[in-house]
């Protein structure tokens, strides 16, 4: 457990650095979480984060890598929905890292 300071707010994180309360998420929180991972969020990152939040809305769980790729391919096309693109954006662990930045719980079923 730790906290993340975003502007004047302090946000609770779990032991793996994921938001304790999904309702705490905002774009500023995502930027702060990304900064902790030495990541600068580009529009390409954002479209995946938005997609993950949509996935969570729909299925109430965080996707493992394979469903993340499949869902991204379905919504954004195969040139975005492939492991190469997603690995490049999210330091080789897209399911875990992108879920964290999107404010979702840590995905189960991930290596």
């Amino acid at each position: 457990m730790s906290t993340l300071t975003v502007g004047s707010r302090s946000v609770a994180l779990d032991k793996d650095g994921y938001l304790q309360d999904l309702g705490d998420w905002s774009r500023d929180v995502a930027h702060a979480l990304a900064a902790q991972e030495d990541l600068e969020l580009s529009p390409e990152h954002w479209e995946v984060l938005e997609l993950l939040r949509q996935f969570y809305q729909e299925f109430q769980l965080s996707p493992a890598t394979r469903p993340l790729i499949k869902y991204t391919a379905l919504k954004l096309g195969p040139e975005k929905g492939n492991s190469l693109h997603l690995n490049r954006l999210f330091k080789g662990t897209p399911a875990k890292l992108a879920a964290k930045l999107a404010g979702l719980p840590k995905p189960t079923n991930c290596i």
């Binding site: 996935f55 729909e58 299925f59 109430q60 769980l61 996707p63 469903p67 499949k70």
Partner: peptide, 15 residues
């Protein structure tokens, strides 16, 4: 409880 009904919908996404 976790929403089993919503989670079930993810089966095809999980292959």
């Amino acid at each position: 409880q976790k929403n089993l009904a919503a989670n079930l919908q993810a089966l095809p996404m999980f292959g």
